[in-house]
Write a protein that binds this DNA or RNA. Structure first.
Lengths: 151, 151
DNA sequence: TCCAAGTAGTTTGATATCAATATAAAATGC
DNA sequence: GCATTTTATATTGATATCAAACTACTTGGA
């Protein structure tokens, strides 16, 4: 049997409409783009997001931070270890719960994120401009909210 | 200095509006969802997308397939090796160019994707329904196109 | 013809991702 | 108080991801 046992319409439907595939593609392209942007600082896009999340008043536990980033807790363990090894954050045991640890930025972490933020602003501005060109349908801000809800 | 050297407005702007972060979050959530869906078949969401792409008449080279999936060529090398090892595809040397190889589904690959497609259809239908509930703003089909363009 | 430049794919090394499992501490029920 | 259950994190193993460097082949030009 040379022909696919799958109807060609189904193949095309999945290929062109699968939100999972579309999200993976978008995520990979944007990850590469921001990884290269932050490469001079030795940061990946994910590390940037994680450090930014810790730059405000919020002092989450590892699990809470993982949930915010929609990542698995085990991934967070590994990511936090890498950043701690580089001296960008400390893992402070929670006072009330001996199981929990809270990542807290070091001074080096704050300095680095202060260097990275302007790069982000410039690049994200470009991205907005590109979106405005290709499809004026969706506001980038609304799009970010939409993407965060997906899944 | 206890306070962040980054203005709080900037932190919030990045946290709430970064399209890269939003895309990574969406990609992770959807990847988990479809990985679990296909787990009984021993497939990941990425393997499913790759096999579906090869289910039509298209017979791309590895590099062309990588470009379609917006992934790095080196990632494709590894992914193809895994699927070849499992007997789901063959890597056929290109006749005209001895450097190039074209992945071609085996019968086992066709059978497996024929089993997986109904699972995808059901789950993607649910996803559509959920999207219709939470935010009626965007058509899922248009959203897939939009996501594919991002980056 | 032959060399230089470009192209297709691979290898290596680092981090990312998650399932399954493990460990330790907290919360619950009796 | 003590046993059970739940929760927070860590460990292991497999695949995913990409940059940098590499090999082998092709192409273009002298």
């Amino acid at each position: 049997m040379q022909q696919s046992s799958l109807p060609i319409e189904t193949v095309l439907q999945i290929r062109d409409q699968c939100l999972c595939l579309a999200a993976q593609r978008a995520a990979r392209k944007l990850a590469r783009r921001f990884d290269r942007l932050f490469a001079p600082l030795g940061l990946t896009n994910g590390q940037f997001s994680m450090l930014v999340a810790l730059s405000g008043q919020w002092q989450p536990r590892l699990g809470e931070l993982a949930e915010f980033l929609a990542m698995d807790a085990t991934t967070m363990t590994a990511a936090a270890k890498t950043l701690e090894k580089r001296g960008l954050l400390h893992l402070i045991p929670d006072q009330a719960d001996a199981r929990a640890r809270r990542p807290v930025l070091t001074e080096a972490g704050r300095v680095l994120i202060a260097q990275a933020a302007p790069l982000w602003c410039a690049e994200h501005g470009k991205l907005h401009a590109e979106l405005a060109e290709t499809q004026a349908s969706t506001d980038p801000k609304a799009l970010a909210q939409l993407l965060s809800q997906l899944g």
